[in-house]
Computed example of a mutant assay.
Amino acid sequence: MHVYDGIDDRLAQWLTSQPVFFVGTAPLGGDGHVNVSPKGMAGTFAVFDRRRVGYLDYYGSGSETIAHLRENGRITLMFAAFDGRPTIVRLYGKGRIVLTQDEEFQSLRTAFPKQRVVAQRAIVMVELDRVSDSCGYAVPRMDFVADRTVLDLRQEKKGPVPYRAYPETKNAQSIDGLPALEDLVERTRPPG
């Protein structure tokens, strides 16, 4: 294992070239559920500097990450090499949600190459306090075929209007009842 003093250019290039990464968060309560979410699609993760990264967040079936970050900010991003050198990199830190209506959203959004988005909810920004790697000897070798287009096609087919209710319905609370978007309804409602 190696602990880095932040993300250098070589590591930034490696991170942004991975086709998938995983986000882990948890509530403070010991009886709450730990959440791990897979993330992907080229151009949805960005390295801002040695100690700051972010990823695009979409409206979806849940809002565990948002609820956990609002409660305690703890987050870990994990990247694993499925080809090449067997490596796992973990980015630990404090996360925060930048909603599409927030003042800094537009300036942060320019760092992400992916532009085709209908139902974007936020950008998850992470201030890193630890960057480390470990061996990925048990991670299988797999071939990356392509990003799935299902999310983009589904959102484009539905258009932005159906997502207007998500902040107060599907994304209102975590599965443990923590507030996610319910009290931010007007700030999180997609246009349309």
Rank of each mutant, 00 (worst) to 15 (best):
Val89Leu: 02
Leu77Val: 06
Gly32Lys: 00
Ile88Ser: 04
Thr44Gly: 02
Lys39Met: 10
Ser61Cys: 09
Arg85Gly: 00
Val47Ile: 14
Arg50Lys: 15
Pro38Lys: 10
Val47Gly: 02
Met78Arg: 10
Ile97Pro: 01
Gly43Ser: 03
Leu69Phe: 13
Glu103Lys: 12
Gly60Val: 06
Phe48Val: 13
Thr65Trp: 09
Gly73Val: 09
Gly40Ile: 01
His33Met: 09
Val98Phe: 00
Val47Asp: 01
Ile88Asn: 06
Glu64Gln: 15
Gly95His: 10
Glu103Phe: 12
Arg85Glu: 08
Phe45Pro: 01
Asp83Gly: 10
Phe82Trp: 12
Glu103Leu: 05
Tyr55Leu: 03
Arg70Asp: 12
Phe48Tyr: 14
Gln101Thr: 04
His68Ala: 03
Val34Ala: 13
Lys39Thr: 06
Ala42Thr: 14
Met78Lys: 07
Leu56Thr: 10
Asp83Phe: 04
Tyr59Arg: 02
Phe82Gln: 01
Arg50Asp: 13
Glu103Thr: 07
Val53Ile: 14
Pro86Tyr: 07
Ala46Phe: 03
Asp57His: 05
Gly40Val: 02
Val53Glu: 01
Val89Gly: 05
Thr44Cys: 11
Phe48Ser: 09
His68Asp: 11
Glu103Met: 08
Tyr58Glu: 15
Arg96Ser: 07
Gln101Asp: 07
Ala42Phe: 07
Asp49His: 02
Arg85Tyr: 00
Gly62Tyr: 14
Pro38Met: 12
His68Val: 02
Val98Pro: 00
Lys94Ser: 12
Phe82Ala: 09
Arg85Trp: 00
Leu91His: 13
Asn35Gly: 05
Gly93Arg: 08
Thr76Trp: 01
Leu77Gln: 10
Arg50Phe: 00
Gly40Met: 04
Ala67Cys: 05
Gly40Pro: 00
Gly93His: 07
Arg50Met: 11
Arg50Gly: 14
Tyr92Val: 06
Ser63Lys: 09
Ser61Val: 15
Thr44Val: 01
Gly60Ala: 15
His68Phe: 04
Leu91Val: 09
Gly60Asp: 12
Tyr92Leu: 08
